[in-house]
């Protein structure tokens, strides 16, 4: 029965991703993407990685996607924007990207032919993850915090003028 769950979650993830990437309306696409992320979290959970599942929902779907939502709302793309998007999604534009993506998929599948192993069936608890984080991976943690700081400063600067302008106009 657990396999069925996995297949259902996988199907939802794929479907939602496909829909997300082919919408003309950005907000709709975003919601579909969040659905996809949730489905992937379910897959994590089924593989015995509850910490990863939680993180996926909290951070990925909860913070990053929300950031997207804010920006999309701020940009306020109107009707003509939607019409443009639909036009850009015409059949002719699919040929080259479709072919390349299909080729890559083919190769990945070919590479996966000889991977018969299954998961271990043992869940990895958050405690183990924490121990590993502050054990062997402590340097990675520090560096990732530096990265976040850099991202913070960059985002602040990149967004600043725009906000200042907006306030000036008032």
């Amino acid at each position: 029965m657990m396999e069925v769950l996995f297949y259902i979650a996988a199907c939802i993830a794929l479907l939602a991703t496909g829909l997300a990437l082919t919408r003309a309306n950005a907000s709709h696409a975003l919601i579909y993407l969040i659905v996809s992320l949730l489905a992937v979290a379910v897959v994590f959970f089924l593989m015995g990685a509850p910490f990863a599942a939680a993180l996926e929902i909290v951070i990925y779907a909860g913070a990053i996607m929300v950031l997207f939502v804010f920006v999309i709302m701020m940009l306020n793309v109107g009707e003509e924007g939607l019409a443009r998007e639909r036009e850009w999604l015409q059949g002719r534009n699919w040929i080259v990207p479709g072919t390349m993506a299909a080729l890559l998929l083919l190769e990945l599948m070919l590479a996966l032919r000889h991977a018969p192993a299954t998961t271990s069936g043992v869940a990895v608890s958050p405690k183990e993850v924490g121990l590993a984080l502050f054990g062997p991976y402590v340097l990675a943690v520090e560096i990732s915090s530096m990265l976040l700081l850099a991202g913070l400063v960059g985002a602040y600067h990149l967004g600043r003028r725009f906000i200042v302008r907006r306030e000036k106009r008032r």
Binding site: M2, E3, L5, F6, A10, A13, L14, V43, L46, M47, G48, A49, L108, M109, L112, A115, P116, A117, T118, T119, S120, G121, V122, A123
Partner: peptide, 13 residues
């Protein structure tokens, strides 16, 4: 305990 999911299929996903 986790599910015995075949690696192949997860990686395929």
């Amino acid at each position: 305990s986790g599910l015995q999911v075949p690696m192949e299929q997860v990686l395929a996903l």
